[in-house]
Design a protein around this nucleic acid. Structure first.
Lengths: 282, 282
DNA sequence: AGGGCCGATACCTCTCGGGTATCGATCGCA
DNA sequence: TGCGATCGATACCCGAGAGGTATCGGCCCT
Protein backbone atom coordinates (compact mmCIF):
# COMPACT_ATOMS: atom_id res chain seq x y z
CA UNK A 1 0.00 0.00 0.00
CA UNK A 2 1.29 3.43 -0.95
CA UNK A 3 0.58 6.48 1.16
CA UNK A 4 -1.06 8.05 -1.89
CA UNK A 5 -3.67 5.29 -1.87
CA UNK A 6 -4.22 5.77 1.84
CA UNK A 7 -4.68 9.51 1.40
CA UNK A 8 -7.24 8.83 -1.30
CA UNK A 9 -9.07 6.31 0.82
CA UNK A 10 -9.21 8.59 3.85
CA UNK A 11 -10.62 11.39 1.73
CA UNK A 12 -13.35 9.20 0.29
CA UNK A 13 -14.11 7.58 3.63
CA UNK A 14 -14.47 10.96 5.29
CA UNK A 15 -16.58 12.51 2.54
CA UNK A 16 -18.48 9.33 1.63
CA UNK A 17 -18.69 10.95 -1.79
CA UNK A 18 -16.24 10.38 -4.66
CA UNK A 19 -16.90 13.73 -6.29
CA UNK A 20 -16.26 15.83 -3.20
CA UNK A 21 -13.28 13.68 -2.20
CA UNK A 22 -11.76 14.14 -5.65
CA UNK A 23 -12.26 17.88 -5.40
CA UNK A 24 -10.62 17.93 -1.99
CA UNK A 25 -7.68 15.98 -3.40
CA UNK A 26 -7.39 18.30 -6.37
CA UNK A 27 -8.03 15.60 -8.95
CA UNK A 28 -10.82 14.28 -11.16
CA UNK A 29 -13.34 11.73 -9.96
CA UNK A 30 -12.68 8.81 -12.34
CA UNK A 31 -9.02 8.17 -11.41
CA UNK A 32 -10.03 8.35 -7.77
CA UNK A 33 -12.70 5.69 -8.30
CA UNK A 34 -10.15 3.54 -10.06
CA UNK A 35 -7.53 4.00 -7.35
CA UNK A 36 -9.94 2.90 -4.63
CA UNK A 37 -11.08 -0.05 -6.68
CA UNK A 38 -7.47 -1.08 -7.22
CA UNK A 39 -6.77 -0.76 -3.50
CA UNK A 40 -9.72 -3.04 -2.81
CA UNK A 41 -8.52 -5.53 -5.41
CA UNK A 42 -5.00 -5.61 -4.02
CA UNK A 43 -6.23 -6.06 -0.46
CA UNK A 44 -8.84 -8.55 -1.58
CA UNK A 45 -11.32 -6.67 0.59
CA UNK A 46 -14.43 -4.59 0.01
CA UNK A 47 -13.86 -1.25 1.76
CA UNK A 48 -16.89 0.70 0.60
CA UNK A 49 -20.38 -0.34 -0.38
CA UNK A 50 -21.36 1.68 -3.43
CA UNK A 51 -24.72 2.09 -5.04
CA UNK A 52 -25.03 4.54 -7.87
CA UNK A 53 -26.44 7.01 -5.36
CA UNK A 54 -24.64 6.42 -2.11
CA UNK A 55 -21.38 5.28 -0.50
CA UNK A 56 -21.21 3.45 2.83
CA UNK A 57 -18.35 2.04 4.89
CA UNK A 58 -17.86 -1.68 5.50
CA UNK A 59 -16.36 -2.97 8.76
CA UNK A 60 -13.05 -3.48 6.96
CA UNK A 61 -13.26 0.09 5.70
CA UNK A 62 -13.68 1.41 9.23
CA UNK A 63 -10.63 -0.54 10.30
CA UNK A 64 -8.56 0.75 7.42
CA UNK A 65 -9.69 4.31 8.09
CA UNK A 66 -8.33 4.14 11.64
CA UNK A 67 -5.11 2.49 10.56
CA UNK A 68 -4.60 4.78 7.59
CA UNK A 69 -4.92 7.86 9.76
CA UNK A 70 -2.25 6.45 12.06
CA UNK A 71 0.01 5.73 9.09
CA UNK A 72 -0.43 9.19 7.60
CA UNK A 73 0.32 10.81 10.95
CA UNK A 74 3.46 8.69 11.20
CA UNK A 75 4.54 9.70 7.70
CA UNK A 76 4.02 13.35 8.44
CA UNK A 77 5.98 12.99 11.67
CA UNK A 78 8.77 11.22 9.81
CA UNK A 79 9.10 14.10 7.34
CA UNK A 80 9.09 16.77 9.99
CA UNK A 81 11.49 15.05 12.34
CA UNK A 82 13.89 14.26 9.53
CA UNK A 83 13.91 17.85 8.34
CA UNK A 84 14.42 19.05 11.86
CA UNK A 85 17.22 16.57 12.53
CA UNK A 86 18.99 17.92 9.45
CA UNK A 87 18.78 21.51 10.56
CA UNK A 88 19.61 20.64 14.15
CA UNK A 89 23.03 19.55 12.97
CA UNK A 90 23.59 23.06 11.75
CA UNK A 91 22.87 24.64 15.13
CA UNK A 92 19.08 24.90 15.39
CA UNK A 93 17.03 23.96 18.52
CA UNK A 94 17.56 20.45 19.82
CA UNK A 95 14.16 19.54 21.17
CA UNK A 96 10.66 20.97 20.87
CA UNK A 97 8.36 20.85 23.88
CA UNK A 98 4.62 21.41 23.53
CA UNK A 99 2.49 22.61 26.40
CA UNK A 100 -0.94 24.04 26.97
CA UNK A 101 -0.76 27.79 26.60
CA UNK A 102 -0.90 29.31 30.08
CA UNK A 103 -1.05 26.08 32.08
CA UNK A 104 1.47 25.31 34.81
CA UNK A 105 3.74 28.13 33.73
CA UNK A 106 5.75 28.24 36.91
CA UNK A 107 6.27 24.48 36.78
CA UNK A 108 7.42 24.80 33.19
CA UNK A 109 9.81 27.57 34.15
CA UNK A 110 11.30 25.40 36.90
CA UNK A 111 11.67 22.49 34.50
CA UNK A 112 13.38 24.55 31.83
CA UNK A 113 15.73 26.13 34.34
CA UNK A 114 16.64 22.80 35.92
CA UNK A 115 17.19 21.18 32.55
CA UNK A 116 19.29 24.04 31.21
CA UNK A 117 21.56 23.55 34.23
CA UNK A 118 22.25 19.94 33.23
CA UNK A 119 25.70 19.37 31.73
CA UNK A 120 24.42 17.76 28.52
CA UNK A 121 21.44 20.05 27.94
CA UNK A 122 20.42 20.88 24.37
CA UNK A 123 18.40 23.97 23.41
CA UNK A 124 14.67 23.64 24.08
CA UNK A 125 12.04 25.32 21.96
CA UNK A 126 8.63 25.67 23.58
CA UNK A 127 5.41 25.51 21.56
CA UNK A 128 2.40 26.92 23.36
CA UNK A 129 -0.29 25.02 21.53
CA UNK A 130 -4.01 25.51 21.89
CA UNK A 131 -6.19 23.42 24.18
CA UNK A 132 -6.18 19.78 23.13
CA UNK A 133 -3.67 20.47 20.38
CA UNK A 134 -0.62 19.02 22.11
CA UNK A 135 -1.33 15.38 21.33
CA UNK A 136 -1.81 16.29 17.66
CA UNK A 137 1.40 18.30 17.62
CA UNK A 138 3.28 15.47 19.29
CA UNK A 139 1.81 12.85 16.98
CA UNK A 140 2.63 14.64 13.74
CA UNK A 141 6.19 15.49 14.68
CA UNK A 142 5.93 19.22 15.27
CA UNK A 143 6.99 18.55 18.86
CA UNK A 144 9.28 15.95 20.43
CA UNK A 145 7.85 15.98 23.93
CA UNK A 146 4.79 17.47 25.62
CA UNK A 147 3.28 18.25 28.99
CA UNK A 148 -0.18 16.72 29.08
CA UNK A 149 -2.92 16.83 31.67
CA UNK A 150 -4.92 13.78 32.65
CA UNK A 151 -7.78 13.07 32.45
CA UNK A 152 -8.23 15.66 29.70
CA UNK A 153 -5.56 14.67 27.23
CA UNK A 154 -5.32 11.29 25.60
CA UNK A 155 -1.92 9.69 26.15
CA UNK A 156 -2.67 6.72 23.90
CA UNK A 157 0.35 5.84 21.84
CA UNK A 158 2.86 7.80 23.84
CA UNK A 159 5.27 6.93 26.58
CA UNK A 160 4.59 8.98 29.68
CA UNK A 161 5.89 9.68 33.15
CA UNK A 162 3.64 11.15 35.83
CA UNK A 163 4.95 14.38 37.26
CA UNK A 164 2.43 15.52 39.82
CA UNK A 165 -1.22 15.53 40.75
CA UNK A 166 -3.16 18.55 41.91
CA UNK A 167 -6.65 19.62 42.93
CA UNK A 168 -8.85 21.76 40.76
CA UNK A 169 -10.12 25.19 41.73
CA UNK A 170 -12.85 27.38 40.37
CA UNK A 171 -11.80 30.83 39.21
CA UNK A 172 -14.34 33.54 40.02
CA UNK A 173 -14.41 37.31 39.63
CA UNK A 174 -13.13 39.03 42.79
CA UNK A 175 -15.99 39.97 45.02
CA UNK A 176 -18.25 37.13 43.94
CA UNK A 177 -20.16 35.76 46.96
CA UNK A 178 -18.73 32.24 46.50
CA UNK A 179 -15.22 33.70 46.50
CA UNK A 180 -15.24 33.86 50.26
CA UNK A 181 -16.00 30.14 50.71
CA UNK A 182 -13.18 27.83 51.76
CA UNK A 183 -14.35 25.25 49.20
CA UNK A 184 -17.25 24.52 46.85
CA UNK A 185 -18.70 21.59 44.92
CA UNK A 186 -19.04 21.29 41.18
CA UNK A 187 -22.78 21.68 41.47
CA UNK A 188 -22.28 25.04 43.19
CA UNK A 189 -20.57 26.61 40.19
CA UNK A 190 -22.40 25.19 37.19
CA UNK A 191 -25.25 27.38 36.04
CA UNK A 192 -24.16 30.36 38.11
CA UNK A 193 -26.33 33.22 36.88
CA UNK A 194 -24.29 35.39 34.53
CA UNK A 195 -21.16 33.27 34.92
CA UNK A 196 -21.30 30.50 32.32
CA UNK A 197 -18.41 28.13 31.74
CA UNK A 198 -16.57 29.23 28.62
CA UNK A 199 -16.45 27.05 25.50
CA UNK A 200 -13.19 25.52 24.26
CA UNK A 201 -12.48 24.71 20.64
CA UNK A 202 -13.19 21.10 19.70
CA UNK A 203 -10.56 18.88 18.14
CA UNK A 204 -11.47 20.22 14.70
CA UNK A 205 -11.04 23.85 15.78
CA UNK A 206 -14.73 24.72 15.85
CA UNK A 207 -16.71 25.75 18.90
CA UNK A 208 -19.61 23.77 20.18
CA UNK A 209 -22.90 25.64 20.12
CA UNK A 210 -24.23 26.87 23.41
CA UNK A 211 -23.97 29.66 25.92
CA UNK A 212 -20.73 30.97 27.32
CA UNK A 213 -17.98 33.05 25.75
CA UNK A 214 -15.31 31.46 23.55
CA UNK A 215 -11.75 31.21 24.78
CA UNK A 216 -8.79 29.27 23.50
CA UNK A 217 -6.06 30.29 25.87
CA UNK A 218 -5.48 30.99 29.51
CA UNK A 219 -4.97 34.75 29.21
CA UNK A 220 -8.30 35.19 27.43
CA UNK A 221 -9.89 33.07 30.11
CA UNK A 222 -8.53 35.14 33.00
CA UNK A 223 -9.58 38.30 31.19
CA UNK A 224 -13.13 37.02 30.80
CA UNK A 225 -13.32 36.01 34.43
CA UNK A 226 -11.87 39.28 35.64
CA UNK A 227 -14.55 41.05 33.65
CA UNK A 228 -17.21 39.02 35.40
CA UNK A 229 -18.32 37.30 32.22
CA UNK A 230 -17.38 33.70 33.06
CA UNK A 231 -16.03 31.31 35.64
CA UNK A 232 -13.87 28.24 35.05
CA UNK A 233 -12.64 25.10 36.77
CA UNK A 234 -8.89 24.71 36.31
CA UNK A 235 -5.96 22.98 38.00
CA UNK A 236 -4.70 24.75 41.09
CA UNK A 237 -1.41 25.73 39.46
CA UNK A 238 -3.14 27.40 36.53
CA UNK A 239 -4.05 29.94 39.18
CA UNK A 240 -4.77 33.63 39.25
CA UNK A 241 -1.30 34.66 38.12
CA UNK A 242 -1.36 37.36 40.79
CA UNK A 243 -4.31 39.17 39.27
CA UNK A 244 -6.35 41.01 41.83
CA UNK A 245 -9.58 40.63 39.90
CA UNK A 246 -9.77 36.84 40.03
CA UNK A 247 -10.05 34.53 43.05
CA UNK A 248 -9.62 30.76 43.26
CA UNK A 249 -11.67 28.39 45.42
CA UNK A 250 -10.98 24.63 45.64
CA UNK A 251 -13.63 22.38 44.08
CA UNK A 252 -13.73 19.30 46.27
CA UNK A 253 -15.47 16.87 43.93
CA UNK A 254 -13.74 17.81 40.68
CA UNK A 255 -11.38 15.09 39.45
CA UNK A 256 -7.79 15.88 40.32
CA UNK A 257 -5.48 16.63 37.43
CA UNK A 258 -2.25 14.77 36.76
CA UNK A 259 0.47 16.46 34.76
CA UNK A 260 2.48 13.99 32.70
CA UNK A 261 5.41 14.37 30.38
CA UNK A 262 4.83 12.43 27.14
CA UNK A 263 6.95 11.54 24.12
CA UNK A 264 6.68 9.33 21.04
CA UNK A 265 7.57 5.79 22.01
CA UNK A 266 10.44 5.26 19.60
CA UNK A 267 12.09 8.57 20.43
CA UNK A 268 15.82 8.17 20.78
CA UNK A 269 16.60 11.84 21.17
CA UNK A 270 19.15 12.69 23.85
CA UNK A 271 17.30 15.94 24.52
CA UNK A 272 13.98 14.22 25.21
CA UNK A 273 15.60 11.70 27.52
CA UNK A 274 17.32 14.44 29.47
CA UNK A 275 14.18 16.50 29.75
CA UNK A 276 12.22 13.53 31.04
CA UNK A 277 14.93 12.68 33.54
CA UNK A 278 15.00 16.23 34.82
CA UNK A 279 11.21 16.45 34.98
CA UNK A 280 10.76 13.25 36.96
CA UNK A 281 13.44 14.18 39.47
CA UNK A 282 12.01 17.65 40.05
CA UNK B 1 6.70 10.47 0.91
CA UNK B 2 5.51 7.19 -0.52
CA UNK B 3 5.98 3.92 1.32
CA UNK B 4 7.96 2.65 -1.66
CA UNK B 5 10.54 5.37 -1.09
CA UNK B 6 10.69 4.50 2.59
CA UNK B 7 11.21 0.82 1.82
CA UNK B 8 14.04 1.74 -0.51
CA UNK B 9 15.62 4.02 2.03
CA UNK B 10 15.43 1.44 4.81
CA UNK B 11 17.07 -1.14 2.58
CA UNK B 12 19.95 1.16 1.66
CA UNK B 13 20.34 2.42 5.23
CA UNK B 14 20.52 -1.12 6.55
CA UNK B 15 22.93 -2.39 3.90
CA UNK B 16 24.91 0.84 3.54
CA UNK B 17 25.49 -0.41 0.01
CA UNK B 18 23.35 0.48 -3.03
CA UNK B 19 24.19 -2.68 -4.94
CA UNK B 20 23.22 -5.09 -2.16
CA UNK B 21 20.16 -3.03 -1.26
CA UNK B 22 19.01 -3.12 -4.89
CA UNK B 23 19.49 -6.86 -4.99
CA UNK B 24 17.51 -7.26 -1.78
CA UNK B 25 14.74 -5.16 -3.28
CA UNK B 26 14.78 -7.15 -6.50
CA UNK B 27 15.66 -4.22 -8.71
CA UNK B 28 18.66 -2.68 -10.45
CA UNK B 29 21.02 -0.30 -8.72
CA UNK B 30 20.60 2.86 -10.83
CA UNK B 31 16.86 3.41 -10.26
CA UNK B 32 17.49 2.86 -6.56
CA UNK B 33 20.19 5.54 -6.52
CA UNK B 34 17.84 7.90 -8.30
CA UNK B 35 14.96 7.18 -5.96
CA UNK B 36 17.06 7.95 -2.90
CA UNK B 37 18.40 11.11 -4.49
CA UNK B 38 14.87 12.22 -5.30
CA UNK B 39 13.77 11.53 -1.73
CA UNK B 40 16.63 13.69 -0.49
CA UNK B 41 15.71 16.45 -2.93
CA UNK B 42 12.07 16.42 -1.95
CA UNK B 43 12.91 16.47 1.77
CA UNK B 44 15.63 19.04 1.19
CA UNK B 45 17.86 16.93 3.42
CA UNK B 46 21.03 14.88 2.95
CA UNK B 47 20.27 11.40 4.29
CA UNK B 48 23.41 9.53 3.26
CA UNK B 49 26.99 10.62 2.76
CA UNK B 50 28.28 8.93 -0.36
CA UNK B 51 31.78 8.64 -1.63
CA UNK B 52 32.41 6.44 -4.61
CA UNK B 53 33.61 3.78 -2.20
CA UNK B 54 31.43 4.04 0.85
CA UNK B 55 27.99 5.04 2.17
CA UNK B 56 27.47 6.52 5.65
CA UNK B 57 24.40 7.76 7.53
CA UNK B 58 23.84 11.38 8.45
CA UNK B 59 22.01 12.33 11.65
CA UNK B 60 18.93 13.09 9.57
CA UNK B 61 19.27 9.66 7.97
CA UNK B 62 19.30 7.97 11.37
CA UNK B 63 16.15 9.83 12.30
CA UNK B 64 14.40 8.86 9.09
CA UNK B 65 15.46 5.24 9.51
CA UNK B 66 13.72 5.05 12.89
CA UNK B 67 10.65 6.84 11.65
CA UNK B 68 10.46 4.88 8.41
CA UNK B 69 10.55 1.58 10.27
CA UNK B 70 7.65 2.77 12.40
CA UNK B 71 5.72 3.82 9.31
CA UNK B 72 6.32 0.54 7.50
CA UNK B 73 5.23 -1.42 10.57
CA UNK B 74 2.08 0.68 10.70
CA UNK B 75 1.39 0.05 7.00
CA UNK B 76 1.85 -3.67 7.42
CA UNK B 77 -0.43 -3.62 10.45
CA UNK B 78 -3.02 -1.67 8.47
CA UNK B 79 -3.07 -4.28 5.70
CA UNK B 80 -3.30 -7.21 8.07
CA UNK B 81 -5.96 -5.74 10.31
CA UNK B 82 -8.04 -4.66 7.34
CA UNK B 83 -7.91 -8.09 5.80
CA UNK B 84 -8.76 -9.66 9.11
CA UNK B 85 -11.64 -7.25 9.70
CA UNK B 86 -13.08 -8.28 6.33
CA UNK B 87 -12.93 -11.96 7.07
CA UNK B 88 -14.17 -11.46 10.61
CA UNK B 89 -17.46 -10.29 9.17
CA UNK B 90 -17.83 -13.65 7.53
CA UNK B 91 -17.42 -15.57 10.79
CA UNK B 92 -13.67 -15.84 11.40
CA UNK B 93 -11.94 -15.24 14.79
CA UNK B 94 -12.64 -11.89 16.38
CA UNK B 95 -9.43 -11.10 18.21
CA UNK B 96 -5.89 -12.46 18.20
CA UNK B 97 -3.94 -12.62 21.45
CA UNK B 98 -0.18 -13.09 21.49
CA UNK B 99 1.64 -14.55 24.45
CA UNK B 100 5.01 -16.01 25.25
CA UNK B 101 4.98 -19.71 24.48
CA UNK B 102 4.81 -21.55 27.79
CA UNK B 103 4.61 -18.56 30.11
CA UNK B 104 1.76 -18.13 32.59
CA UNK B 105 -0.29 -20.82 30.94
CA UNK B 106 -2.64 -21.28 33.84
CA UNK B 107 -3.22 -17.54 34.04
CA UNK B 108 -3.96 -17.49 30.33
CA UNK B 109 -6.38 -20.38 30.73
CA UNK B 110 -8.23 -18.53 33.49
CA UNK B 111 -8.39 -15.38 31.37
CA UNK B 112 -9.74 -17.17 28.32
CA UNK B 113 -12.33 -19.04 30.38
CA UNK B 114 -13.47 -15.89 32.17
CA UNK B 115 -13.70 -13.94 28.93
CA UNK B 116 -15.56 -16.66 27.09
CA UNK B 117 -18.17 -16.51 29.85
CA UNK B 118 -18.83 -12.83 29.16
CA UNK B 119 -22.08 -12.14 27.36
CA UNK B 120 -20.48 -10.17 24.48
CA UNK B 121 -17.42 -12.36 24.01
CA UNK B 122 -15.99 -12.82 20.53
CA UNK B 123 -13.80 -15.76 19.49
CA UNK B 124 -10.17 -15.47 20.63
CA UNK B 125 -7.28 -16.90 18.66
CA UNK B 126 -4.06 -17.38 20.63
CA UNK B 127 -0.63 -16.98 19.05
CA UNK B 128 2.19 -18.54 21.02
CA UNK B 129 5.05 -16.43 19.73
CA UNK B 130 8.73 -16.90 20.49
CA UNK B 131 10.56 -15.01 23.19
CA UNK B 132 10.57 -11.28 22.49
CA UNK B 133 8.39 -11.77 19.43
CA UNK B 134 5.13 -10.53 20.93
CA UNK B 135 5.83 -6.83 20.59
CA UNK B 136 6.73 -7.38 16.95
CA UNK B 137 3.60 -9.40 16.31
CA UNK B 138 1.48 -6.77 18.03
CA UNK B 139 3.14 -3.92 16.15
CA UNK B 140 2.73 -5.40 12.69
CA UNK B 141 -0.89 -6.37 13.13
CA UNK B 142 -0.60 -10.13 13.39
CA UNK B 143 -2.08 -9.82 16.88
CA UNK B 144 -4.58 -7.40 18.42
CA UNK B 145 -3.56 -7.77 22.04
CA UNK B 146 -0.68 -9.40 23.92
CA UNK B 147 0.45 -10.51 27.35
CA UNK B 148 3.86 -8.94 28.00
CA UNK B 149 6.27 -9.28 30.86
CA UNK B 150 8.07 -6.29 32.35
CA UNK B 151 10.91 -5.52 32.58
CA UNK B 152 11.75 -7.84 29.64
CA UNK B 153 9.35 -6.65 26.98
CA UNK B 154 9.23 -3.13 25.69
CA UNK B 155 5.75 -1.65 25.99
CA UNK B 156 6.71 1.52 24.13
CA UNK B 157 3.91 2.57 21.82
CA UNK B 158 1.22 0.42 23.34
CA UNK B 159 -1.49 1.01 25.86
CA UNK B 160 -1.14 -1.34 28.80
CA UNK B 161 -2.82 -2.43 32.01
CA UNK B 162 -0.85 -4.14 34.77
CA UNK B 163 -2.26 -7.50 35.70
CA UNK B 164 -0.03 -8.88 38.43
CA UNK B 165 3.50 -8.93 39.76
CA UNK B 166 5.39 -12.01 40.86
CA UNK B 167 8.78 -13.10 42.17
CA UNK B 168 11.28 -14.96 40.10
CA UNK B 169 12.58 -18.42 40.86
CA UNK B 170 15.55 -20.35 39.62
CA UNK B 171 14.79 -23.69 37.97
CA UNK B 172 17.33 -26.39 38.79
CA UNK B 173 17.62 -30.08 37.99
CA UNK B 174 16.04 -32.18 40.76
CA UNK B 175 18.66 -33.29 43.20
CA UNK B 176 20.91 -30.27 42.75
CA UNK B 177 22.38 -29.17 46.11
CA UNK B 178 20.85 -25.69 45.86
CA UNK B 179 17.44 -27.24 45.28
CA UNK B 180 17.03 -27.83 48.98
CA UNK B 181 17.56 -24.17 49.93
CA UNK B 182 14.54 -22.05 50.85
CA UNK B 183 15.88 -19.20 48.74
CA UNK B 184 19.02 -18.11 46.85
CA UNK B 185 20.55 -14.92 45.42
CA UNK B 186 21.33 -14.20 41.79
CA UNK B 187 25.03 -14.52 42.49
CA UNK B 188 24.49 -18.08 43.79
CA UNK B 189 23.21 -19.32 40.45
CA UNK B 190 25.31 -17.53 37.88
CA UNK B 191 28.37 -19.51 36.87
CA UNK B 192 27.17 -22.71 38.43
CA UNK B 193 29.61 -25.34 37.18
CA UNK B 194 27.94 -27.31 34.38
CA UNK B 195 24.70 -25.34 34.63
CA UNK B 196 25.05 -22.29 32.37
CA UNK B 197 22.11 -19.96 31.71
CA UNK B 198 20.71 -20.76 28.28
CA UNK B 199 20.86 -18.22 25.45
CA UNK B 200 17.71 -16.67 23.97
CA UNK B 201 17.37 -15.53 20.39
CA UNK B 202 18.01 -11.82 19.91
CA UNK B 203 15.48 -9.55 18.26
CA UNK B 204 16.84 -10.49 14.85
CA UNK B 205 16.47 -14.20 15.48
CA UNK B 206 20.17 -14.95 15.92
CA UNK B 207 21.82 -16.23 19.05
CA UNK B 208 24.47 -14.29 20.88
CA UNK B 209 27.82 -16.04 21.03
CA UNK B 210 28.82 -17.57 24.32
CA UNK B 211 28.38 -20.63 26.47
CA UNK B 212 25.09 -22.20 27.34
CA UNK B 213 22.61 -24.16 25.23
CA UNK B 214 20.17 -22.43 22.90
CA UNK B 215 16.46 -22.43 23.70
CA UNK B 216 13.59 -20.45 22.31
CA UNK B 217 10.65 -21.84 24.20
CA UNK B 218 9.68 -22.97 27.62
CA UNK B 219 9.40 -26.68 26.85
CA UNK B 220 12.91 -26.81 25.45
CA UNK B 221 14.09 -24.95 28.53
CA UNK B 222 12.49 -27.39 30.98
CA UNK B 223 13.88 -30.27 28.99
CA UNK B 224 17.41 -28.85 29.18
CA UNK B 225 17.12 -28.26 32.89
CA UNK B 226 15.70 -31.69 33.58
CA UNK B 227 18.67 -33.12 31.71
CA UNK B 228 21.01 -31.21 34.01
CA UNK B 229 22.39 -29.11 31.17
CA UNK B 230 21.21 -25.66 32.29
CA UNK B 231 19.44 -23.64 34.92
CA UNK B 232 17.23 -20.60 34.41
CA UNK B 233 15.66 -17.71 36.28
CA UNK B 234 11.98 -17.39 35.41
CA UNK B 235 8.78 -15.94 36.89
CA UNK B 236 7.24 -18.08 39.60
CA UNK B 237 4.21 -18.95 37.48
CA UNK B 238 6.33 -20.24 34.63
CA UNK B 239 7.08 -23.03 37.08
CA UNK B 240 7.93 -26.65 36.86
CA UNK B 241 4.68 -27.69 35.20
CA UNK B 242 4.56 -30.66 37.53
CA UNK B 243 7.75 -32.21 36.19
CA UNK B 244 9.55 -34.25 38.78
CA UNK B 245 12.98 -33.57 37.31
CA UNK B 246 12.98 -29.81 37.89
CA UNK B 247 12.77 -27.85 41.14
CA UNK B 248 12.17 -24.14 41.71
CA UNK B 249 13.84 -21.96 44.36
CA UNK B 250 12.95 -18.27 44.89
CA UNK B 251 15.67 -15.79 43.90
CA UNK B 252 15.37 -12.96 46.38
CA UNK B 253 17.26 -10.24 44.54
CA UNK B 254 15.99 -10.89 41.02
CA UNK B 255 13.70 -8.13 39.78
CA UNK B 256 10.06 -9.10 40.11
CA UNK B 257 8.15 -9.60 36.89
CA UNK B 258 4.97 -7.74 36.02
CA UNK B 259 2.54 -9.25 33.57
CA UNK B 260 0.72 -6.60 31.54
CA UNK B 261 -1.92 -6.78 28.86
CA UNK B 262 -1.02 -4.53 25.93
CA UNK B 263 -2.80 -3.35 22.78
CA UNK B 264 -2.21 -0.83 20.01
CA UNK B 265 -3.29 2.59 21.23
CA UNK B 266 -5.85 3.32 18.54
CA UNK B 267 -7.52 -0.06 18.84
CA UNK B 268 -11.27 0.27 18.81
CA UNK B 269 -12.02 -3.41 18.72
CA UNK B 270 -14.83 -4.59 20.95
CA UNK B 271 -12.99 -7.85 21.53
CA UNK B 272 -9.82 -6.18 22.76
CA UNK B 273 -11.75 -3.93 25.11
CA UNK B 274 -13.60 -6.92 26.54
CA UNK B 275 -10.45 -8.95 27.05
CA UNK B 276 -8.75 -6.07 28.82
CA UNK B 277 -11.77 -5.54 31.04
CA UNK B 278 -11.88 -9.21 31.93
CA UNK B 279 -8.13 -9.40 32.53
CA UNK B 280 -8.00 -6.41 34.87
CA UNK B 281 -10.92 -7.63 36.93
CA UNK B 282 -9.50 -11.13 37.28
C1' DA C 1 50.00 2.06 -13.47
C1' DG C 2 46.15 -0.84 -13.81
C1' DG C 3 42.25 -3.61 -12.45
C1' DG C 4 38.16 -3.95 -9.83
C1' DC C 5 34.57 -1.99 -7.04
C1' DC C 6 30.79 1.16 -6.56
C1' DG C 7 27.79 5.04 -7.07
C1' DA C 8 26.25 8.42 -10.73
C1' DT C 9 24.76 9.49 -15.34
C1' DA C 10 22.69 8.85 -19.98
C1' DC C 11 19.22 7.07 -22.40
C1' DC C 12 15.48 4.01 -23.51
C1' DT C 13 11.00 1.60 -22.60
C1' DC C 14 6.57 0.94 -21.00
C1' DT C 15 3.63 0.89 -17.11
C1' DC C 16 0.32 3.32 -14.80
C1' DG C 17 -1.55 7.53 -12.83
C1' DG C 18 -4.44 11.12 -14.25
C1' DG C 19 -7.49 13.65 -17.59
C1' DT C 20 -11.94 14.05 -20.67
C1' DA C 21 -16.12 12.22 -22.47
C1' DT C 22 -19.77 9.41 -21.66
C1' DC C 23 -22.66 5.72 -19.85
C1' DG C 24 -26.03 3.68 -16.73
C1' DA C 25 -28.43 3.46 -12.50
C1' DT C 26 -31.24 5.72 -9.09
C1' DC C 27 -33.76 9.27 -6.83
C1' DG C 28 -36.74 13.47 -6.62
C1' DC C 29 -40.32 15.70 -8.61
C1' DA C 30 -44.07 17.15 -11.48
C1' DT D 1 -45.02 7.60 -14.95
C1' DG D 2 -41.57 10.05 -17.19
C1' DC D 3 -37.83 13.49 -17.08
C1' DG D 4 -33.88 15.72 -15.38
C1' DA D 5 -30.29 15.72 -12.03
C1' DT D 6 -26.87 13.31 -9.51
C1' DC D 7 -23.23 10.14 -8.93
C1' DG D 8 -20.21 6.27 -9.58
C1' DA D 9 -18.26 3.33 -13.40
C1' DT D 10 -16.34 2.72 -17.95
C1' DA D 11 -13.77 3.80 -22.28
C1' DC D 12 -10.09 5.90 -24.17
C1' DC D 13 -6.13 8.92 -24.43
C1' DC D 14 -1.76 11.12 -22.92
C1' DG D 15 2.39 12.03 -20.43
C1' DA D 16 5.14 11.51 -16.26
C1' DG D 17 7.99 8.69 -14.09
C1' DA D 18 9.58 4.11 -12.48
C1' DG D 19 12.67 0.76 -13.90
C1' DG D 20 15.90 -1.37 -17.19
C1' DT D 21 20.80 -1.51 -19.70
C1' DA D 22 25.12 0.47 -20.87
C1' DT D 23 28.62 3.24 -19.39
C1' DC D 24 31.25 6.68 -16.92
C1' DG D 25 34.27 8.39 -13.26
C1' DG D 26 36.35 8.32 -8.75
C1' DC D 27 38.78 5.54 -5.46
C1' DC D 28 41.26 1.82 -3.23
C1' DC D 29 44.37 -2.07 -3.65
C1' DT D 30 48.14 -4.31 -5.37
Amino acid sequence: METRELRYFVAVAEELHFGRAAERLGMAQPPLSRAIRQLERRLGVELLERTSRTVAMTAAGETLLDEARAVLDAVEAAERRTRRAAHTTTGQPGVVLATKAGASTEFLAKLLAAYAAEPDAVPVEVILSGIGEQTRVLRDGRADVALLHLPFDDTAGFDTEELRTERQVVLLPAGHPLGARSHVLTADVTDLPGLPLPRWPEADGTYRDGPGPQADNHAQLLQLIGLGRACAIVPESGGTSGRGDVVAVPVLDAPSVTTVIAWPPHSRSRGVAGLVRTATSL
